[in-house]
């Protein structure tokens, strides 16, 4: 699942400490009750944990090992040390893909965040019909990505709707997807179109959680719309904002389908990203070791965002316990 609803933590009571003490006084089936509860708790988590060991941690460790070998699924893997990484460092396609991935992550994260916030602020004005507008816009987030991609490939066609709508403004024919300077921005825009409405909802939840009194107080102090936004909304929305940035960056680092269908990585290598390179290297050329090395690089990028994400989580958790 790509996204999260956790910007706002529920106002939960920390699990009751008394529970354990009370439980300890009971005995059941030979085991002390508290001990039994511990086992039950762990047993609930076990299936998910086993799943993650088998399909996440196991494969990642395997990828690290594979990245040090040459393997084509026909003959047995052969240890080659850092050769795969050395090859990547010299590969211009890899370098281009790495840069593209960063550009894509930065561009789409910025656009998703700004658009999501702007939409949420617009809905939060609570003008008549705001709620219906929100539901309608959220639909873009439910449209299958493959449908989004195919629709936008037609819309961005030189004779497509986008150019038709821009024509009255004196914009001539624009080759959105075949111009190497425009293809990446176009894909970023489509990404924002698909994902911003989701984060609109996350922002909206954050906005609704800000007590109305704060705005009233600011208004009484003579703060206008802008100052209320800068001094009340923004500081209180900071945790949500930070969360949205990290989650959309994590989302963006996984991009595959949009460039794969809309541009095929082109023109040239202008929109080739790391996930495409992993797929091509591994499954078109059967260079599993090299593909694993690219995976490790992509993993390193995601690691940064995940560490950030965890810090947000730990901070909110501590705020809770206080």
């Amino acid at each position: 699942m790509s996204t999260a609803h956790s910007a706002r933590l529920p106002d939960a009571a920390a699990p009751d400490r008394g529970e354990r003490a009370a439980g300890a006084r009971l005995r059941r089936g030979g085991l002390r009750f508290g001990r039994r509860l511990q086992l039950v708790g762990a047993a609930f988590v076990l299936p998910a944990l086993l799943f993650f060991l088998a399909f996440k941690f196991g494969p990642m460790l395997w990828a690290m090992e594979l990245s040090l070998s040459a393997y084509d699924m026909v003959s047995a893997p052969r240890f080659v040390g850092l050769e795969n990484y050395a090859k990547l460092a010299e590969d211009p396609v890899f370098r281009a893909s790495l840069i593209n991935t960063f550009v894509y992550i930065a561009g789409s994260t910025a656009l998703i965040t700004l658009a999501g916030l702007a939409l949420a602020l617009a809905i939060n004005t609570a003008v008549p019909g705001a709620r219906h507008c929100m539901t309608a816009m959220f639909l873009t987030n439910l449209m299958p990505i493959i449908a989004v991609t195919l629709v936008w490939r037609f819309l961005l066609h030189p004779f497509g709707l986008v150019n038709q709508l821009l024509q009255p403004f004196g914009v001539g024919r624009v080759d959105w997807l075949t111009d190497e300077n425009l293809a990446m921005p176009a894909i970023i825009a489509v990404t924002a179109w698909r994902f911003a409405p989701y984060f609109m909802v996350v922002f909206l939840a954050g906005l609704l959680a800000i007590p109305k009194d704060y705005y009233e107080a600011a208004e009484i102090d003579g703060a206008g719309v802008v100052r209320r936004f800068v001094h009340v909304t923004l500081p209180l929305l900071m945790p949500t904002l930070f969360f949205v940035v990290v989650v959309s960056a994590l989302l963006a680092s996984r991009i595959f389908l949009m460039p794969y269908i809309m541009t095929g990585g082109g023109p040239g290598d202008a929109t080739r990203v790391l996930s495409m390179l992993i797929y091509e290297t591994g499954f078109s050329y059967l260079k599993m070791g090299e593909a694993a090395a690219i995976s490790v690089v992509l993993f390193a990028i995601m690691l940064v965002f995940t560490v950030l994400q965890m810090q947000i989580f730990m901070r909110s958790e501590r705020a809770h316990l206080r």
Binding site: V45, A48, L49, F52, A54, F55, K56, F57, G58, P59, M60, W62, A63, L66, L250, R254, F256, S275, I278, Y279, G282, F283, M288, A291, A292, S295, L298, F299, M302, L303, F305, T306, Q309, M310, F313
Partner: peptide
């Protein structure tokens, strides 16, 4: 620790572990 372990799998989407997951 388990919670953090589970949360840390966010950095291991299928796009990253594609090759070994396929091998599994």
């Amino acid at each position: 620790f388990m919670l953090l372990l589970i949360l840390s799998t966010l950095m291991l989407p299928l796009e990253v572990t594609l090759v070994p997951t396929f091998l599994v």
